[in-house]
């Protein structure tokens, strides 16, 4: 088994779920969300390169086509740009496509249709049309994924009006946000993370929606505010577990949605702690970290009692090799180091 897969599996095996209720793996929560959406609404269809193959997109779509038929769940040509436009055209004509990609890297091929078409129509059609479509992909990391299979591109898309961007970190949110995204009347991007796929959590049965644009506190504390999403937030929580023993406490905010951004929860916490660390799976430069950092400087300056800090990816391409990768990506120890610096004022 590739080491990344082994690591994800071993972590999941050791994970304890404290809450009461039905426990599901992340990937099964997503599978259940798609099943429920397909059952609920005949206008929903699911497509993507590999959705019907035996591995079923990490398990997110496994065997869905057997239950719902290949008219509603189908494998596609690799034509990412064309098919994004096809989804937009189908969405304009009364359907609700859910287009899945193995990696966000492939979305770079779709920007013409995503940025210049799907996200613009509602506005340039003066509200006469809407484009209810979901584009899902899973960020990779590890086992040689390298510069073209590990990119996290949410930051590139933050400035595109009309798009919504979701980045869950728990099975509960993954299901509720997927269902909310499919019900939404706008183009919605969901970036999941491959390393979250086996995480376990309590997931209620049936349909429920998590509101798009609402963050949530994962921990409460006094010394600083940590905001982020997805896998990096999971790393920050691990770091805080270690720092607990050192008497350091933090508000850890899982934004869950990057666009629209829940500014309220960020400023509420910052007012109390006066210090903020922003973590993201994407580049630190000109991305999520940069945007939130700027927002804090602009609107929360007088609450700040120390410099804004960010942990994203360095401004260099992602290496493929194992050793270089260990230096490249943030881990819980690196995050903990920055937190210690922030708390001690160093």
């Amino acid at each position: 088994m590739p080491w990344a897969e082994a690591l994800i599996t071993s972590k999941a095996a050791g994970q304890e779920v404290a809450e009461e209720g039905r426990v599901l793996a992340y990937v099964d929560a997503l599978h259940e969300a798609l099943t429920l959406a397909l059952e609920l609404d005949p206008k929903v269809f699911v497509l993507g390169q590999g959705v019907n193959d035996p591995r079923g997109m990490f398990g997110v779509t496994t065997d869905l086509y057997k239950k719902f038929g290949e008219d509603r769940v189908f494998d596609t040509p690799l034509s990412e740009e064309g098919l994004t436009g096809i989804c937009a055209g189908a969405a304009l004509n009364g359907t609700r496509p859910v287009y899945l990609h193995n990696r966000p890297d492939f979305l770079l091929l779709t920007f013409n249709q995503l940025v210049s078409h799907a996200s613009k129509f509602h506005y340039i059609d003066n509200g006469q049309n809407n484009v209810p479509m979901v584009v899902w992909s899973a960020i990779g990391r590890g086992w040689g994924s390298g510069s073209q299979h590990s990119q996290a591109i949410q930051g590139f898309l933050l400035g595109v009006p009309g798009l919504k961007i979701i980045m869950p970190s728990t099975p509960y949110d993954a299901k509720g946000l997927m269902l909310a995204a499919i019900a939404d009347n706008n183009p919605v991007l969901i970036f999941d993370h491959r390393w979250n796929m086996k995480a376990k959590g309590v997931v209620p049965e049936g349909i429920y929606h998590i509101p798009i644009g609402k963050g949530v506190y994962r921990r409460r504390g006094e010394d600083l505010t940590i905001v982020g999403t997805s896998h990096t937030l999971a790393l920050a929580l691990e770091a805080m577990e270690d720092l607990d023993k050192e008497g350091i406490s933090a508000d850890v905010i899982d934004l869950r949605t990057l666009k629209p951004l829940d500014e309220e929860i960020i400023f509420e916490s910052l007012k109390k702690t006066g210090k903020i660390l922003i973590v993201d799976t994407g580049p630190a430069m000109a991305g999520v970290c940069a945007e939130i950092g700027c927002l804090v400087a602009e609107k929360g300056f007088h609450d700040l009692r120390g410099p804004v800090r960010r942990i994203g990816l360095p401004d260099s391409p992602i290496p493929a090799g194992f050793t270089l990768e260990q230096y490249y990506f943030p881990d819980k120890d690196r995050i903990a180091k920055v937190i210690r610096e922030m708390v001690s004022g160093a």
Partner: peptide, 11 residues
């Protein structure tokens, strides 16, 4: 062109 193709798919 993709949009119209998608309209045809939707139809």
């Amino acid at each position: 062109v993709p949009i119209a193709t998608g309209a045809a798919f939707g139809a």
